[in-house]
């Protein structure tokens, strides 16, 4: 039998050793992890703008090449800061924590929003990052709009824990490609967002089909999450869009 003193000493030393080891690992690996997170973000942004051939190896040079400006905008649609130098990952907009800003927005506190401007074949593309809730956890994404904000160039989605094969399908090209060419404003210039329609867009009257995409069968709640995310986030950018289109 071991004495109580021994047990306490044993436990204390073991816990301190484990803590030291883990802190060391966390500190040593942090630069790699942050780089991966930044690269992942860049890939998402470029993917929404339909820039192909971006891998984790060439994401940084491609991002610096295609993204021409990164803006921080306030709720009234004014540009707070603009950044067009390299490296682009040092921009204030790139380092905005959208989750925190949306939380502030929900609490009616002042907030700022990031906006990325890419240039492809001489055309400006505006890329808006989004964040929302899926069925099991957060979902996020980017939506790329054409230079006068009327057409969707492309989208990108990611999720923390949606069901693989059901909600997880929002990440597949099959779902994302549906958004290309859809519009977020109707003919009268009213904001319509993009509706993710359960049962398919053929349920909508024909004039509205340009504002809708098919939901994923069996993933109604994730589809609703995507629907709400696009609507809620784009709404916040409307003042800026109104001023610049």
């Amino acid at each position: 039998m071991y004495s109580n003193g021994y047990i306490f000493r044993y436990a204390a030393i073991m816990v301190i050793l484990a803590a030291a080891l883990l802190s060391l690992a966390a500190v040593l690996l942090k630069p790699f992890q942050e780089r991966n997170i930044a690269i992942d973000k860049m890939q998402g942004i470029l993917s929404a703008a339909q820039i192909k051939g971006v891998t984790s190896e060439n994401a940084i040079p491609n991002f610096n090449k295609y993204i021409v400006e990164e803006l921080v905008i306030d709720p009234e649609g004014n540009v707070v800061s603009s950044y067009d130098k390299s490296p682009k990952q040092d921009a204030p907009a790139f380092n905005i924590d959208l989750k925190a800003e949306l939380y502030k927005q929900g609490k009616h506190k002042p907030y700022v929003l990031p906006l990325y401007v890419a240039e492809k074949n001489g055309q400006k593309i505006y890329i808006i990052p989004m964040r929302g809730v899926g069925l099991w956890g957060p979902i996020w994404g980017n939506i790329a709009l054409s230079s006068n904000f009327d057409k969707v160039i492309g989208v990108y989605f990611g999720d923390k824990s949606e069901t693989p094969g059901l909600g997880g399908e929002i990440k597949t090209p099959k779902f994302k490609n549906q958004f290309i060419g859809k519009t977020i404003f109707n003919k009268k210039g009213q904001f319509t967002s993009i509706e993710v329609v359960k049962g398919g867009i053929q349920k909508l009257p024909p004039p509205q089909r340009v504002h809708g995409v098919d939901a994923i069968a069996g993933a109604t709640l994730t589809s609703n999450g995507v629907n709400n995310m696009i609507k809620d986030v784009l709404k916040l950018y409307l003042p800026y869009i109104k001023k610049h289109s």
Partner: peptide, 30 residues
């Protein structure tokens, strides 16, 4: 000490799992 052996085992396992998780995040992020 046999009285805290499950705790000791848990600490060892948890430490290893966190290490694996951190390494995966650093090198095979996707």
């Amino acid at each position: 000490p046999s009285r805290i052996r499950i705790i000791v085992q848990l600490v060892v396992v948890a430490t290893l799992v966190i290490l694996v998780d951190q390494v995966l995040k650093a090198f095979v992020y996707d």
